[in-house]
Design a protein around this nucleic acid. Structure first.
Length: 448
RNA sequence: GCCUCGGUGGUGUAGCCCGGUCUAGCAUAGGACGCUGUCACCGUUCUGACCCGGGUUCAAAUCCCGGCCGAGGCGCCA
């Protein structure tokens, strides 16, 4: 047989009128003698003399299907010859309560329908063993996502997103959506992906920043959960070209209020995970401590002095290097804020401090060495905003559509943008951002 | 973008420094057979690999050059 492909023609059954009556984990001793129909994939097949154990796996878990060769109908024995790991199958049979089976119950099949078979040897087993390189796994990502660990990560992701939405909505924030195709107006910083918009040049949005600021005029408290695009040639375990950003913006508040909101939100999210995803966290072998508010607020000045004591020199006005962040991660293995950054290294829309224009009302929300979010009080004066644009080498003319709004009563406001993937890394203890992203996009990967 | 490292059966690896017993080892997966309670079953057995191209050499998985692909670090950035 060829090693690359298993080009054996297998007979495939039709789904027909079969519909699922139960998911795998619902098969328990309480269903004793009930006829059930389950669907899923064959996770393993073990022969033990005259008895064959099939493990059927669906989105919720696994169930054992047991075939006694001397008692089973011939049709089933025939099917066995065509089965291989990862085949998708349907099983109709009778539930038997038996202590020796996993979860105390198993299905004795009356009929099996093979709905698809595998044409290649899968690169890994759902039952562990050595993991292939992440590259190989990403090439067949949806198969990889059936691994229990991946399932756990994305169940947690689902829970996190719902918890964040529930929290923000309960606090009166309105969910908004802003355009991802934009004309110009880079905020500076991250590079943009250009694209052709009919006959014009356009770009993928690096952030909903300017739109969400404008939206505080009609809605006052807004949030958006959506993709942002960065054309940075970043080759690290914590950067992607496309990520989900959780953006919040609110009128008539300052960055102090925004930090408090983050504290409450993180508290709610961690509590929800511990309540609802304990099995998943256990499988990931990750302990999540529900953090107590308030989180530490350390000024940029304080941080660089702290680093100096560890012989890591950050010149005032510079961003923190990877090395500096690593040291910080060892000293502060928790959630904390770095506040009051130099104005020059923050975007033009961040408000300089009254009294000292060199620093601004800004914060980075951190966990250990990883930056999760950044935020701050925004500039609400048009004159100041134009001055700041020029200081950062940007042309006010390109921001005309944004600036004109400031002629119509732009209130003081503040907000933040938080990277969902980075939050997921922290919550699930993953070191590679690709593990918490279904279809990661980076400098080198554009498919699947 | 810069730097470093790597590419050996379906998968994970050993071998590479120091070229020749490499007919390429091991584990796992896959095929066949045996086994009536397995649960990463077990036992026997079989199958299956040196990224591509060029060079050096009597001899290349091993050394050199180019290409392709990948991983990590730094920078940028969130």
């Amino acid at each position: 047989m060829s090693s690359k492909t298993l080009m054996v023609m297998k007979k495939i059954d039709e789904l027909g009128d079969w519909r699922r009556t139960h998911y795998s984990v619902e098969i328990t001793p309480r269903l004793e003698n009930k006829r059930v129909t389950v669907f899923g994939w064959l996770a393993s097949m073990r022969e033990q003399g005259g008895i064959v154990f099939l493990i059927l796996n669906d989105k919720d878990g696994m169930v054992q299907v047991t075939i006694h060769k001397d008692r089973a109908p011939n049709s089933i024995l025939e099917k066995l010859k065509n089965l291989n790991e990862h085949s998708s199958i349907g099983v109709r049979g009778i539930v038997k309560s038996i202590k020796k089976a996993p979860r105390g119950a198993e299905i004795i099949p009356e009929e099996i329908r093979i709905l698809s078979t595998t044409q290649r040897q899968p690169p890994f087993s759902l039952f562990g063993g050595k993991m292939p390189s992440i590259d190989k796994r990403l090439d067949i990502r949806v198969i990889d996502l059936r691994r229990p660990k991946a399932q756990s990560i994305f169940k947690i992701r689902h829970t996190v997103l719902k918890a964040i939405r529930d929290f923000l909505i309960s606090k009166g924030y309105v969910e908004v959506s802003t355009p991802k195709i934009i004309a110009t107006a880079t905020e500076g910083g991250a590079a943009l992906f250009p694209l052709l918009y009919y006959d014009k040049e356009a770009f993928l949005a690096q952030s909903p920043q300017l739109y969400k600021e404008q939206l505080v005029i009609p809605f006052e408290k807004v949030f958006e959960i959506g993709p942002i695009f960065r054309a940075e040639e970043s080759r690290t375990l914590r950067h992607l070209s496309e990520v989900i950003s959780i953006d919040v913006e609110e009128a008539f508040v300052s960055y102090e209020d925004t930090m408090k909101l983050i504290e409450q939100m993180i508290h709610h999210v961690t509590k929800t995970i511990n309540d609802k995803c304990s099995e998943e966290m256990e499988l990931l072998k990750h302990k999540l401590i529900i953090p107590k508010a308030p989180f530490k607020r350390l000024t940029y000045d304080y941080i660089i002095k702290m680093l100096e004591k560890e012989d890591v020199i950050v010149n005032w006005g510079e961003d923190l290097s990877t090395q500096a962040l690593k040291i910080l991660g060892e000293m502060l293995p928790e959630f904390y804020f770095i506040t009051d950054w130099p104005t020059a290294i923050k975007p033009f829309y961040i408000k300089p401090k009254d009294g000292n224009q060199d620093i601004c009302e800004s914060f980075d929300f951190m966990h250990g060495s990883i930056e999760l979010a950044s935020g701050g009080s925004r500039v609400s004066s048009k004159r100041l905003l134009m001055k700041r644009l020029k200081e950062q080498g940007l042309k006010p003319k390109l921001f005309e559509y944004h600036l004109r709004i400031f002629d119509y009563g732009m209130p003081p406001h503040a907000g933040f943008g938080l990277g969902l993937e980075r939050l997921m890394m922290v919550l699930t203890g993953q070191e590679n951002i690709r593990e918490v992203t279904m279809f990661p996009r980076d400098q080198f990967r554009l498919a699947p």
